[in-house]
Design a protein around this nucleic acid. Structure first.
Lengths: 87, 87
DNA sequence: TATATATTTAGACAAATGTCTAAATAATAT
DNA sequence: ATATTATTTAGACATTTGTCTAAATATATA
């Protein structure tokens, strides 16, 4: 859980997640959308991967990234505890 | 939104939120539950307050902290975008 | 007024984070 | 085989973060 919140605590990484919600993309396609360097984006992707928020699949020389929504479900469950209490 | 994810990115602060989900507590009561110093807890409470995740109300010499669930709702909405897409 | 209690503020410091450039790895094309 | 393209790894560096102790502020009590 810690690692997931850590991964979400960066605007670039959250934007990557939003992009991947639209369609799967290669590392290069993702990096093109930002002004920061390719290695920095690669590092962000690694953090998202560690948190299992994204899945990476190699196809030839490209690496396709896609969203892993099951972890999003887990986070949602954590937040739901704050809704259950009757006021 | 940035400030909220930042506030959530710490296990102590998340634990404070879970404690406040049970009942309102004073800064001192909260601090007692942890091994870290009072000033550190005070700092954590300040970050939660900045994110509007908690509300602080002074009563005499005590400061009561309570959960602000409306911000939790906003976060949930952000996560919901990842559920809407049909696969 | 002086003292005790509750909490925050200030300043220091080590560890973690986000960024960069340069180099390495891997696959494809000439 | 060599060059090109896609991506990651390594190392450096400035900024941010979480923690601490000491001091300050605010309220209540003797």
């Amino acid at each position: 859980m810690n690692i997931v919140f850590k991964a979400l605590n960066d605007p670039t990484r959250r934007e990557i997640l939003e992009m991947l919600q639209e369609r799967d993309m290669t590392a290069g396609e993702i990096a093109e959308q930002f002004t920061i360097s390719f290695p920095s984006i690669s590092h962000h992707l690694d953090i998202l991967k560690q948190a299992k928020l994204v899945i990476a699949e190699k196809e030839g020389q490209f690496v396709y990234y896609s969203l892993n929504t099951t972890v999003v479900d887990d986070i949602m469950k954590w937040f739901l505890q704050f809704k259950s209490k009757k006021k």
